[in-house]
């Protein structure tokens, strides 16, 4: 699980062009949207693509996204349980 969290942080930094951030700057339970990392709706689309492309998870209900993308911890947990890749 720790490896998955680190992998996710690296993917997020790369996909969202968070150039000045490192893995250490993102804590596992930090909010990804709003007051946390401050990601926006376009970033959410990038996260959906990461789930699909890299882990074979297709999100069909936007309500799920809110819970899944709450933090690195919630993302990693969901991926571990649902991944097909």
């Amino acid at each position: 699980m720790e490896d998955l969290k680190k992998e996710l942080k690296l993917k997020i930094i790369e996909a969202l062009n968070l150039e000045d951030m490192s893995v250490e700057d993102i804590s596992d339970d930090e909010m990804l949207f709003e007051e946390g990392l401050g990601l926006d709706s376009i970033d959410a689309l990038e996260l959906i693509i990461i789930l699909d492309k890299d882990y074979g998870i297709k999100l069909t209900d936007s309500k799920d996204g809110k819970k899944i993308f709450r933090s690195i911890e919630t993302m990693a947990t969901y991926i571990a349980e649902h991944r097909s890749k």
Partner: peptide
């Protein structure tokens, strides 16, 4: 294969 348009680029 596996082609995805990046929303972050597209905007």
């Amino acid at each position: 294969a596996d082609s995805y348009a990046s929303p972050a680029n597209f905007v």
